[in-house]
């Protein structure tokens, strides 16, 4: 009797210790967010004063100033529409290619796959200089095109291709065969049968692609020079007054504005998002 009780207590104590130690490990993961939100509400002098998570006075005006200081709304919109465009294009193109690699037999398929895989292993810094000249030659400097073209056709699109290929390989073929019997073209089979069955993989590609585009930094840094064409990461790294002095409090308020919505979406859809990333690893 008493033995089983202590057993139970022991388990409870163990559980509490366990949770407590996880909480401690979690501090550096959570704290930056709390600090960012709190500092975005402080005045410039307070950020560097005695550290405290609670501002002495909440400066909501920081959030308004962010918008008057830079065309922040336009920059927000740029990031959003570029990320959506990149995601839609990547879904379309990579699922087409992934389908061909998974289902269709053709000479050179293995070679094509090998070539594409090699692109995954090369950091984009290797090709950024020629791509800079390529974009210039195309007359697309200081436009949003490179921010769309490079991710869609670069390594990110190829990650999508292989994710889709992997998923198509695991799908049963019977339905597609049936579709062909009913007179659907190859495109029709892909569009009406294969794609609807691959929602989880499409979601995975969409989430990964969106986040990648949303957080892109090197490409905007190099290709975009007009303030109103900036994307968020670039805008965040550029909060200085007309004489080049940093405006910390505005920068942190802007950072909060850029991060919090994504965090909220993540919290709502966290199960789906985490599963997508788990799926993305399967590709091997």
């Amino acid at each position: 009797m008493t033995g089983s009780l202590t057993q139970r207590q022991l388990r409870l104590v163990k559980q509490v210790c366990w949770t407590l130690s996880l909480c401690i490990v979690a501090v550096p993961f959570v704290f930056p967010f709390l600090w960012m939100i709190s500092s975005g509400l402080k005045g410039p002098s307070e950020i560097f004063g005695r550290p405290s998570l609670i501002p002495t006075a909440f400066r909501w005006s920081n959030y308004l100033e962010v918008f008057s200081y830079q065309p922040f709304a336009a920059q927000y919109f740029n990031s959003l529409y570029i990320a959506v465009t990149v995601t839609v294009l990547t879904l379309f193109i990579s699922s087409l290619a992934g389908y061909a690699l998974a289902r269709l037999r053709f000479a050179g398929a293995a070679l094509v796959a090998l070539f594409l895989v090699s692109a995954l292993m090369v950091p984009e810094e290797v090709t950024i200089i020629p791509n800079f000249f390529l974009i210039r030659w195309l007359g697309l400097s200081d436009t949003h095109w490179p921010l769309i073209l490079l991710p869609v056709f670069g390594p990110q699109g190829i990650v999508g291709t292989f994710l889709m290929r992997q998923y198509f390989l695991a799908l049963p073929k019977e339905l597609e065969e049936a579709g062909k019997m009913d007179g659907l073209s190859r495109f029709g089979v892909w569009w009406r049968i294969a794609l609807p069955m691959s929602r989880p993989a499409l979601a995975a590609v969409a989430i990964i692609t969106f986040l990648n585009s949303w957080n892109l930094f090197l490409e905007p840094l190099i290709f975009i020079s007009s303030l109103e064409k900036f994307t968020l990461p670039l805008a965040l790294s550029n909060f200085t007054d007309p004489y080049g002095s940093p405006l910390w409090h505005l920068q942190l308020a802007a950072t909060t504005l850029a991060v919090v919505p994504i965090l909220i979406v993540y919290l709502i859809a966290q199960r789906q998002i985490i599963e997508s990333f788990a799926l993305s690893g399967v590709k091997g």
Binding site: W137, D142, F239, T240, P242, Y243
Partner: peptide
């Protein structure tokens, strides 16, 4: 307007980028 912090760098990108 190009932010002061990156001004010279961005100017370089515009000149070298054909814009």
């Amino acid at each position: 307007t190009i932010p002061a912090g990156d001004y010279t760098q961005k100017l370089t990108f515009q000149l070298a980028g054909g814009n």
